[in-house]
Amino acid sequence: MGNEELILKLKEVFPEMDCVQGNDWPELSFGSDRLIDVITYLKQTPELAFDYLFCETCVDWKTHFNMVYHLDSTRYRHNVVLKVKTDREKPEIASLAHVYRTAEQHEREIFDLFGIVFLGHPNLKRIMLTEEWVGYPLRKDYEDPINIIKL
């Protein structure tokens, strides 16, 4: 399916969501409560068949976090980007580890560096930093007077 066709399809299925053409792929934005619905639909609909989560990351916008999911269909080779707004005070979102196995490692890294709690994750603990590390270094308000020299 081409990008235009994909946008039309997504607008038809999720009319209340914002769907625009990004730099490369269609981008669908919505709130964190709809994540599992959308993912389940995208993965299980036969003509979409988004069976590969090739990137999962997070952006700190200071007012909120945006979780970003890049999905690929290995059958049709089309892609879609999901942008999910998350609360900054209580950063919680459903884990995709049970839908895409690769999310398990991605989500541990995001938890490590951004401190987002993934509900239902099988093994949510720090992956690269030490266990006793305090804080989440990729947050915009992270302070570390010992290691960080500010410019």
């Binding site: 270094p137 992270y142 570390d144 290691n147 960080i148 020299i149 500010k150 410019l151």
Partner: peptide
């Protein structure tokens, strides 16, 4: 990586 990094030995 001299400025604004938490992980690099200077």
């Amino acid at each position: 990586f001299f400025y604004n990094t938490y992980s690099v030995v200077k």
